[in-house]
C-alpha cells in the first residue's frame, strides 16, 4: 500500500490526523484523544496490519508532549510513525496501547517513569527504573537536578 492510499485510509478512520512525509517515513500527527481509534485501525485493518510496535517513546517539546509510535508490518513490509500530541503539562494523559501490544506495557511504564505521562487503562502503571519515591520526571526538559545534572551552556 503506497503512502497516498494509506493517508486516505487513515483520514477516514481519524479525520483529525495530519500528515508529514520525509525520505523514509510517513508521519501521522494526531491529538491524544483520537490516538487509540487510529492505532486500533492501523493494527486491525487487514490492508494496513501494523503488527509490530517497533518503538514507543515520548518527546518533550516544551510545553506539549508528543508520544511516538513507530509501527511496522511484518506481513505487508511497510512502516509508519504516529505522533500523538498531548497538550498540558500539569496532568498529561493518553490511552494505553497495551491492550493491542503486550510489549507496550513495560515501554509505557518507562515513559511514565521518565515523562510522567499517565496511561489510561494501563494494567500496572508504576515507576519502572526509578525508586517509587522519586520526585519529578527526569527526561522532561524542565527537570532540574543541581547535584546530578551539569549545566554547561
Amino acid at each position: 500500500m503506497d503512502a497516498e492510499n494509506m493517508k486516505q485510509r487513515i483520514s477516514s478512520a481519524a479525520p483529525a490526523a495530519s500528515f508529514e512525509v520525509d525520505k523514509e517515513f510517513l508521519y501521522v500527527i494526531i491529538p491524544a484523544d483520537n490516538l487509540f481509534t487510529l492505532i486500533k485501525t492501523l493494527k486491525t485493518d487487514p490492508d494496513l496490519s501494523f503488527n509490530h510496535l517497533s518503538c514507543l517513546t515520548c518527546i518533550d517539546r516544551n510545553p506539549e508532549f508528543y508520544m511516538i509510535y513507530i509501527l511496522q508490518s511484518f506481513e505487508k513490509k511497510h512502516e509508519i510513525v504516529v505522533k500523538a500530541k498531548i497538550s498540558g503539562r500539569s496532568n498529561p494523559a493518553i490511552e494505553s496501547v497495551s491492550s493491542l501490544w503486550s510489549g507496550a506495557e513495560l515501554l509505557e511504564r518507562e515513559v511514565f517513569d521518565f515523562f510522567g505521562i499517565k496511561f489510561n487503562n494501563h494494567p500496572d502503571l508504576r515507576r519502572l527504573f526509578l525508586a517509587d519515591d522519586w520526585n519529578g520526571f527526569p527526561l522532561r526538559k524542565d527537570y532540574a537536578d543541581e547535584v546530578n545534572i551539569e549545566n554547561r551552556n
Binding site: 503488527n51 503486550s102 510489549g103
Partner: peptide
C-alpha cells in the same frame, strides 16, 4: 503471535 505482540 505473542513474540510479535511483545515486540520480541
Amino acid at each position: 503471535e505473542e513474540a510479535v505482540s511483545f515486540g520480541c
